[in-house]
Nucleic acid binder design. Structure first.
Lengths: 236, 236
DNA sequence: TAGCATGTTGTTGTGCACAACATAAGAAGA
DNA sequence: TCTTCTTATGTTGTGCACAACAACATGCTA
């Protein structure tokens, strides 16, 4: 009856569950900039950390590479991809359209439990704004995204939205890290997101998922516009 | 100076090229029903056929499993997934919307070479209709899909459209195989597709990619409606 | 003869050793 | 001192052997 040496590692998880756990862990680290863009990872180190061999770990790396978050180069290493605002323009262009579709295709039946989840995250969002931590902002932003995608039951749409979201998730933190000192701009980002959460929550409360989709669409478009402006001001 | 023992295997292809070649080969076999839904594949056989070990081949199988075309079960085998019309409803729902987006997001500049490709496939489509072979229909349909996606330069949109297309590509051949003897229905399918190709070709000739997207959208929706009807008539 | 336990066979999953490859350091030469 | 070739080092890619697991066949028992 040996206990697991690592926390958060249930003994009854199958190979599929283990794969998912490692995958999500690494994906979160990349998107929270725990792994800086351009930095090198070693397969053996990661394998050792998660208590497996290189072989099953490589399956995770292959998937992350297919999603554009990593790049394995023979004889060099596994490099965390760098991101550029211009390269992400097409991804945002598509995310904008898919956000609208989330409110239109196969909408869920809104029940009390769903409304409660939106109200809960809205309350935590309000607290986050008071503190003003970019990292906490990114965390709640990620959580809110997952909640938003549950508004549709169209599974392919949810999968694709998730994939595109994680391709763009890093750019906000990366841009924000260059704006330290400009607290007004950061505070504006927090308040804007706060309004988005409030508006979408109220739309869900009224059962108007189409409206929720339009609000989300508009906010994604405006968010990217601000990111592009902040990057352009830096470069120009 | 050993010559390659297999045709279509250039010696200068990198590991990336080899991966893509094996991947597309297996994907085509699955979608052309060369591998019947539910049939079992052996990793070692496939590895031997392509002249590699199991290790690199498994990367291909992992990707095909992620796309829903295969299912690896420990101790059992690698099974070609079966497809159901009802399960594909959501995929079609999304494909319909993405087809419209292809004509709207980042449209390409239409030049003479692009028009020539559409006219070429239109001519071959006309010849196909005269012969009336379901397999040849599927092949041209696949080729036309790839040509259609070149109407947008939005790379994520093209990738996602491709993935969803191959998830649904088998259902037509599978449904058609049950309709042998109903030559009128098959001929109707051919002629309908012929009209789609003609309409989209003319839209491209006029540089109206938005219209091309709408035509494509309508045809995908109608095609799935007919497939659902044919399946329902069988079951009911 | 039905039911069950058990061994046998076949397949995918994993770990490990080595090959292929790229990079950087260092030495030799001009 | 600069250039260039060689060598050393470190990393990912591949092949192979074995473990984990499931399905099937076989024989034993009631």
């Amino acid at each position: 009856m040996m206990a697991d040496h690592a926390a958060g590692k249930p003994a009854d998880e199958g190979v599929r569950g283990r794969f998912e756990r490692i995958y999500q862990t690494l994906r979160t680290r990349i998107c929270m900039l725990d792994y800086a863009p351009g930095s090198r990872l070693r397969e053996e180190d990661l394998a050792g950390e998660f208590g497996v061999s290189r072989t099953p770990l490589r399956r995770v790396l292959v998937k992350l590479e297919a999603e554009g978050l990593l790049r394995s180069v023979h004889g060099v290493g596994t490099i965390v991809t760098d991101i550029d605002v211009d390269e992400l323009a097409q991804v945002y262009e598509l995310r904008i359209e898919l956000a609208e579709l989330v409110g239109k295709l196969s909408p869920v039946i809104v029940d009390a439990a769903l409304i409660a989840r939106f109200r809960d995250i809205r309350a935590r969002c309000d607290r986050m704004v008071a503190e003003g931590d970019p990292r906490e902002f990114s965390r709640i932003n990620m959580e809110f995204f997952h909640l938003f995608t549950t508004l549709t039951t169209n599974e392919p749409l949810r999968e694709i939205s998730e994939r595109l979201y994680y391709q763009t998730a890093r750019i906000w933190l990366k841009t924000a890290s260059r704006l330290e000192g400009f607290d007004e701009l950061l505070q504006n980002e927090f308040v804007t997101f706060q309004r988005e959460v409030a508006d979408i929550t109220e739309a869900v409360e009224h059962g108007d998922l189409t409206a929720a989709g339009y609000v989300r669409r508009a906010h994604i478009a405006m968010s990217f516009s601000r990111i592009r402006q902040a990057s352009g001001a830096e470069a120009g």
